[in-house]
Design a protein around this nucleic acid. Sequence first.
DNA 1: GCATATGTTAGTCC
DNA 2: AGGACTAACATATG
Length: 262
Amino acid sequence: MPELPDVEGFRRVAEGAAGRIVRSVAVRDAQVVRNAEASGFDAALRGRRLGHPRRHGKLLLLPTGSGRGFPAVLLHFGMTGMLLRTDAGDPPHPHDRVVVSLDRGELRYRDQRKLIGIALLTEQGGWQAELSRLGPDAAAIDRDELRDRLGRTRRQLKAALLDQTRVAGLGNLTVDEVLWRARLHPRTATTDLRAPDWRRLDQRLHGVVAASARAGCVPPRPSWLTGHRDERAGRCPRCATELTSGVLSGRTTVWCPSCQRA
DNA sequence: GCATATGTTAGTCC
DNA sequence: AGGACTAACATATG
């Protein structure tokens, strides 16, 4: 599930918990903890007040306190993670890996596959180190920067857009949606794009990201490519041509062979 | 058993 | 060196 739009939805969930006091942290499955002793979360966070969450790409930071914001919890949701606010005592779910009990309700990190996980950050440097590995956030990047970060080396457009060190936050669904709307074939070489291509790419990227972030997911609407990618012989919502799918960059990729010429 | 899954990364072969 | 592809991670579903 989690690409930038989904994580933006989780950020709003966490924003709803800003100002609450952490009563306890239960790490139900230590496998999701990336960098600390599982018991370190409770020790570091108990009694602290949650601050305003920050998102960059697919990363979400939950700071504490009103000052520097640390210690903080860094969350990555892999393919199946989510963050939800529940009432205290709501029935546990088997995939609840970490439960943060608050003075009102709970915050739960739920993740079926446990592909990435969470980390405890005790100082600003930890967050800076994470950010240094990522490109600018896809929601905030401008056209010149997009072109600069993607167009310097020859790569398949799909692979370049998925590369989090180039631009952070775009996932498999978002990229296919953006390329379909910009009428660009996913295998197009980044060095072959011309000015109007970059302009369309930038416009469509921001359109898709903004609408998806508002929805908290890449919405599977009938008018979007994403609404048809799982159909057996889905058709392009623009021209009704049967959609093509293939594997590119190791990911299932769907495009319209008529609208998106190689 | 096989294929698939909205992510990331290490290894291999150009 | 850099790009493309594969396998692997852990788990569930069809």
